[in-house]
Design a protein around this nucleic acid. Structure first.
Lengths: 241, 241
DNA sequence: CCAAAAGTGTTTCAAGTACACCCATGA
DNA sequence: TCATGGGTGTACTTGAAACACTTTTGG
């Protein structure tokens, strides 16, 4: 394998996980202490990313980053934006970081996000940590903006593609599906109306299985059929003028 | 101004124009004849593009390309995808072109599209030409795919953002608006139902002006108010599960 | 028997859909 | 007066929204 990397192009991955109480982002610790008074101490977080491989597609580079961190082999990867070199000025910390890692100041980054249930990812190292999307720590570079852009893109994708089902388990309850929508869109949805609407969709298929919680009524499980979805929606366009 | 360019990153612009009978794409002639039997003659078309400027943002590079060709100063520029280096194998023609222009085989391109009424752009040179989206000529590189991706992105954008109004004149008739939707989505819309739907939107504002055609009833003109739109839609989310 | 979450129905109103003819104009 | 495209109305069906209580289970 060819491990050479481009010095002016990096790939960043915003890793979203849906927990029972909302969306989380997987962040990577960024620390550097030169023990010099004229240089700042770096102790913050960044989204995962690396320079792109010269001999691979961008998608392959993104997959490599994601797989190394999560050990997952199935995932939904969405490219949402590419950020050019001089779009945002760098802070002292960012410049120090770039210099001490032999990177180029003028570079660009292709940004992807990955969505899945949070519990599907098991973290083994302290270098990585989940943060609730609503209370992020101090972030390096312009990663606040990148994460925000990713969520905005996800909100819109949800309207026109069935990506919501990648945020929940293969077998899911209707309440889990509802929480997924509520978490991504930051809204509350009426439970009765939501169930009525979803149950009309023939690509949400009921199973003869239930999921048992503790001390509560077991809930019915459903699966999403992409095949059925594709057939139903191929000539189905809604004009939201 | 710093004119240096990156040798491994280019910016491509798919320029869409809406005519009275559908969507068009503005293409650039690509010709090369080395008069050698072992080398192909290149005589096809490509979407507009260039290597990215080192000291500019990607958006600025895209703007420069667009403005040089169209002389327009107002436009709607949408970044929709970045293509990595090895994603598609190159043809002999493409390789010859790359070599004879001192470009790198392994490069990536950030792709934008621009949308406007076709008649807003006046072409001065034979190098550029409008082609109907439905009958494109032979294209270099993977530009068929890029154009197709651009249209797919536009179709989805139309569902969640008011970009349709960038395809038509500032003052437009309802039938022009309907043709815009029909052209982008490749569908037919019932005229009566469409008008009813649009006239309910308070951000489509009727004017006391008409547009006169020849030998037909003059048609009422409307404008789109982005301010009103933003106010109306800020808490308006439709879940299209 | 209690806490916790799952699940259920009705009414009202708004929006979507199907469908065919008259109108105003300039040539 | 005619060809051209602009413009209009109704009946029906479907979907959205508001709203509160019962059910099942494990502890």
């Amino acid at each position: 394998m060819d491990f050479r990397k481009l010095d002016n192009v990096s790939v960043n991955c915003v890793i979203f996980g849906l927990g029972s109480n909302g969306l989380y982002v997987l962040l990577q610790k960024r620390t550097l202490n030169m023990f010099r008074e004229d240089l700042p101490t770096i102790d913050d977080w960044v989204i995962t990313g690396e320079r792109a491989f010269i001999s691979k597609t961008l998608e392959e580079s993104a997959n490599i980053i994601f797989k190394r961190i999560t050990s997952l082999n199935e995932f939904n990867r969405i490219q949402f934006h590419t950020y050019g070199n001089t779009s945002t000025p760098k802070t002292d910390k960012d410049l120090l970081w770039i210099r001490s890692h032999g990177l180029k100041v003028q570079s660009m980054t292709i940004a992807y996000y990955f969505i899945q249930p949070k519990e599907r990812i098991h973290l083994s190292s302290d270098e990585f940590k989940w943060f609730p999307l609503k209370s992020l720590p101090e972030l390096g570079f312009d990663h606040h903006k990148i994460i925000n852009d990713a969520q905005e893109d996800l909100k819109k994708k949800i309207m026109v593609e069935p990506v919501i089902f990648d945020l929940i388990s293969h077998k899911f309850t209707l309440n889990e599906l509802q929480i997924a929508f509520e978490s991504v869109l930051n809204i509350e949805i009426d439970n009765r109306n939501f169930r009525k609407k979803v149950l009309k969709k023939i690509y949400v298929i009921p199973l003869n299985e239930t999921k048992k919680g503790k001390a509560k009524k077991p809930s019915k499980l459903y699966v999403f059929s992409r095949d059925v979805y594709d057939k139903v929606t191929e000539k189905d366009l809604i004009i939201n003028i």
